[in-house]
C-alpha cells in the first residue's frame, strides 16, 4: 500500500531512519522527539503502565496499539502531562517534562486530542478554533477590557483559523455551534483546533473512533499531511487497517508493557502481537486444552 505513495523529503528521511532501527521493544531511534524511561503508573494495586523505554522518532507517524486495557491511553495521559507517573522520567525535545504542568506543554509544541471528542459544544466552530491559539494578549483579563490591545492579533488568529477550517473542509460550519457538528466533523474540528497551537508533536487519542468509513480516508490523509509538514504524530488506535495504512512505526502494548515494535508490516506478522490480540491459544480447540 505504502509503496506507490510519494513522500515528502522529511517523511522519507524519517522512514528510512526507522527502517534501520532494531525491531525490538524499547528500540533506540536516531533522532527521538519523545523519550520515556521507566515510566510506571499504578492505580491502587493495579499496574496500568510499566514501560522500560520508548522513543518516538522525529518526523514520523508512530502508532500505539494494543488490546483493550493494555494501558495505551494511560501512557498517553502520562506523556502529555495529564497524569503523573508513580515513577519514571520522560522528556520532550530534550526537555525533562516531569515538572512541567499540563497546561504548559502546548506552548512547548506538544498538543493532544481526546478519545471522546472534546469539542466545546456551546462555542461556535470559529471560536473553538480561535481558542487554540497560544500566547493571546486578550486572554489576560486586564487586556480583555480594551479591545484595541488584542483586535489585531485576533484578526491574525481568525485568518489562520479560517485557513485551517478550509483545509479540514469545515468552512461552511464556521458560525455554527460546535454541538451541531457530526461525530466525524467534531474529530476534524478537534484536530484543526490542536493545530492552532502550532505544535511540533501531535498526539491523537483514537482519531478514528466513531468516524464513518468515508471520513476515515480523509482523516488518514490529514494525518499524513501533518507528517509531511514536518510534525511528529503519535496516535493510539484500534483500527488495524488504519494503523497499517498510515503509520511509519508501530509500538504494541499489552498489560501495561511494550511487547513489540517495528514497521507495520513486521508487526502484522509478529507472533507475540497476534497472541496478545487473539489469545495465545488460538487455533487450538477448547477440547484439546483439556481444561
Amino acid at each position: 500500500m505504502g509503496a506507490e505513495r510519494s513522500y515528502s523529503p522529511l517523511a522519507q528521511a524519517a522512514r528510512s531512519a526507522l527502517a534501520g532501527c532494531d525491531k525490538v521493544p524499547g528500540s533506540r531511534k536516531p533522532d527521538p522527539m519523545l523519550v520515556a524511561d521507566g515510566v510506571r503508573r499504578e492505580f491502587g494495586g493495579i499496574v496500568a503502565v510499566d514501560v522500560e523505554h520508548i522513543e518516538v522518532q522525529r518526523g514520523s507517524i508512530t502508532a500505539l496499539i494494543g488490546p483493550n486495557g493494555a494501558g495505551k491511553t494511560t501512557l498517553f495521559n502520562l506523556l502529555s502531562g495529564f497524569d503523573t507517573p508513580s515513577t519514571g522520567t520522560w522528556s520532550f525535545d530534550g526537555r525533562n517534562m516531569a515538572k512541567v504542568a499540563s497546561h504548559k506543554t502546548a506552548a512547548l509544541g506538544m498538543v493532544r486530542t481526546f478519545q471522546l471528542t472534546k469539542s466545546l459544544t456551546k462555542l461556535t466552530v470559529i471560536e473553538n478554533m480561535r481558542l487554540g491559539a497560544t500566547g493571546q494578549r486578550g486572554e489576560k483579563w486586564w487586556n480583555g477590557l480594551f479591545s484595541a490591545t488584542w483586535k489585531k492579533q485576533e484578526a491574525e488568529i481568525t485568518a489562520r483559523a479560517e485557513t485551517l477550517l478550509e483545509r479540514f473542509k469545515l468552512s461552511h460550519m464556521r458560525d455554527e455551534f460546535a454541538g451541531a457538528l457530526s461525530g466525524g466533523q467534531r474529530k476534524l474540528l478537534e484536530m484543526a483546533r490542536a493545530l492552532m497551537t502550532d505544535p511540533t508533536l501531535v498526539m491523537l487519542d483514537e482519531p478514528m473512533a466513531g468516524v464513518n468509513p468515508a471520513l476515515k480516508q480523509s482523516l488518514n490523509d490529514h494525518i499524513r499531511g501533518l507528517r509531511d509538514e514536518g510534525m511528529t504524530v503519535l496516535f493510539v488506535e484500534h483500527d488495524m487497517d488504519m494503523v497499517h495504512d498510515v503509520s511509519d512505526w508501530v509500538i504494541v502494548m499489552a498489560e501495561g508493557r511494550v511487547i513489540a515494535e517495528g514497521t507495520p508490516d513486521d508487526i502484522s506478522k509478529n507472533p507475540a502481537v497476534i497472541d496478545a490480540y487473539l489469545g495465545a491459544h488460538q487455533g487450538r480447540s477448547l477440547m484439546e486444552e483439556g481444561a
Partner: peptide, 11 residues
C-alpha cells in the same frame, strides 16, 4: 464546556 480540552490547548 470542558476544562481538559482547554488545558490541552495550553491554558
Amino acid at each position: 464546556e470542558d476544562e481538559d480540552a482547554v488545558r490541552s490547548l495550553g491554558k
